[in-house]
Amino acid sequence: MKAAVVIFPGSNCDVDMIHALEDVLGCQVAQVWHKDTSLQGADLVALPGGFSYGDYLRGGALASFSPIMEAVIAHAQAGKLLMGVCNGFQVLTESGLLPGCLMRNRTLQFRCQDVYLTVENNQTVFTSLYRSNQVLRLPIAHGEGCYYASEAELRELEDSGRVVFRYSNAGGEYTPEANPNGSSRAIAGIVNAAGNVLGMMPHPERYCEELVGGSDGRWLFHGILKAWKERVIS
């Protein structure tokens, strides 16, 4: 599987994402600059975290208009795999590839901490190596991660199983204290209707090895690789 990591001016989790894909998963990774127009034949595209364009105007807004995004949108529309983490999730909502938006955290605080999240849907191409309702521990680091969508969109997301991760406590219970940013229905990650685009605020790429504090994130990447292999074989 070939992967591409898109680097915007202000991306700062690109190196972590490249490390996870290249060194942990063993993929060939292309580093694609935001002014490029080609994804170099990537099977998986990852939009990393950071503060693209300094978060000017709105988080992810200006990045969603950068030259590479035309290729990213075409990649998604062709049914290929695309994931956005943190600022990458903001870019996906701003570009209309995922519904809703990410607002300023309810607490107004920038939250940089480990959180627990429950795998609500393990039937996606991204989460098939997790158990249903498995509780993961992953880091977050964001000031604008409060997921918001209209009631109708939230219902649609829930009814179609597109809420992939929710913030919970270590026991898998959804409590207000476990929701670090005030997200609607404690949503931490969603997929699009076709299931090939994932957006999530927590950072799986930062927790791929016990050496750095946790490894709950690595199974997401192994899951993607497994799904891709099955797709290629079938």
Binding site: L57, A61, F65, C101
Partner: peptide, 8 residues
């Protein structure tokens, strides 16, 4: 298209 996000 740009200056405001009509979602919010």
């Amino acid at each position: 298209k740009v200056l405001a996000n009509p979602v919010m």
